[in-house]
Design a protein around this nucleic acid. Sequence first.
DNA 1: AGCGTCACTTAGTATTGCTGCA
DNA 2: TGCAGCAATACTAAGTGACGCT
Length: 556
Amino acid sequence: HRGSRRGTWEEKKYEDGVKWMSLEHNGPYFPPEYQPLPDDVSFYYNGKKVKLSLAAEEVALFFAQMLDHEYTTKQVFRENFFKDWRKEMTAEERSLIQHLEKCDFGELHNLHKAKVEARKNMSKEEKQALKEANQKITDEYGYCLLDRHKERIGNFKIEPPGLFRGRGEHPKQGMLKKRVQPEDVIINCSKDSRIPVPPAGHRWKEVRHDNTVTWLASWTENVQGSIKYIMLNANSKLKGEKDWEKYEVARKLKSCVDDIRDQYLRDLKSKEMVTRQRAVALYFIDKLALRAGNEKEEGETADTVGCCSLRVEHITLHDQLDGNECVVEFDFLGKDSIRYYNKVPVIKKSVLSLWFSGDGPFCLSLQTSLLNKHLSSLMPGLTAKVFRTYNASITLQQQLKALTNQSDNEAEKLLSYNRANRAVAILCNHQRAPPKTFEQSMATLQTKIEARKEQLALAKTELKQAKKEAKAKGNSDPKLQKYRCEEQLLKMEVQATDREENKQIALGTSKLNYLDPRISVAWCKNMGVPIEKIYNKTQREKFAWAIDMTEADFEF
DNA sequence: AGCGTCACTTAGTATTGCTGCA
DNA sequence: TGCAGCAATACTAAGTGACGCT
């Protein structure tokens, strides 16, 4: 453990999967019940006013609230919504309301907009009252006692009902996400703790006492049938230790990655087809930080892929492209339907010939389970995703080393840090939609820079002038002014560069999930940069373990 | 091996709230 | 002192991978 103090973070308390000895909490917070529409707001069908049943009205409002959103123009969304909405209708309503096109949600939509507007225009006192009410909810439901320590809960609120918003071309978009009842919720806590009390008139689905899991409550969501959990906040000891463990596994990979690389390069020539295919998968997972690509059930989710589920249509092989030999062109939708596009020169022609070797649509006939089984035999705890963590963290460390100089000023150092972070985000393909106000905000910043330049020029002139006059008096003010001006200008220019380079790149995901925080902490110590410049309050809480234990000589 | 289930991490976007500037 | 613009937070979907059963 070079560069780290032994301390509470390194203790391993319990054996074999036991996560806690005592757990007490107040259960999840349920969203408020539906408030019926006021009498002067109506839904119309085919031009005629229709008073909907409470259940149908609530779902109608879900749709009305989304009318400004692109979702409601999509055919799949509309069909799914309408089908599920009709299920909530009374028989009478169902026989009347047959076509979504004949529905007029205008008044409902306006009501919603008015409510949003009213919330914006609340008085200070009203806002304060609301804030206090929310605080009260957080105080009551937002914390738990785990092994006698008070810990924050990450998501203590039950997800409110609404229309399912899948990402990309999701076949289930628009379906009704039903209201969760206490009768749907499983509570997990310790036997001898104060059992959470369900809302009046209700009971829990089950109360269990399973200390091999970390969740406090769970329910099954109706759209995909998946389980949702109430879990601890990222700043909790439990999550922190797990995070630390993750990076330790990635560091262990560092010590054997050379051997593993040698082996998969050799395996490319193996007589066994499975071995060769495995080698190709590993090669790209390592080189491009691709995700594993588990199989997905067709028709249940958007059509997205990862390394092992890449299909023939996602890659193009080029003997020659842009002056390079042997290039693989990737073009596919990955997690969250984010496009991955990359042209990659590969080591050998042999790699290319290994694609398409199956007769199905897949590039490789290889399952992630097989890949991970192999990996775990090479190193305990090694799986495909460890390569992403490892390559992300090692890239940050290398980039920081290459980009930053002790002699840089703080703004320059921070730009370098962001650039190193950006290199990782690009590697991991962490994208974002360009902010709506991007062009505008760039222009504003540019204007400010111009103004500051003029001011600086003026300050310089004044300084010359003042030098002559002030020599006798010893007045240094104009000099200071010029200096400050220069510094602010530089800071803004750096900011502009940073923002431009960041247009479509999201740094947060890698910072939060892939970059060993100890690298950043050590860098801050070495560069004399306060940790607050790199991590905000939440992030410092999440990475408390790293901030606590890391010395300047830490090496990933 | 092949699956379904479960637990947990990783992900982008929507909303909220704070700050610095006119 | 109001508010634009950005940072922080909230939200919840979408992945990974372990495990147990057949």
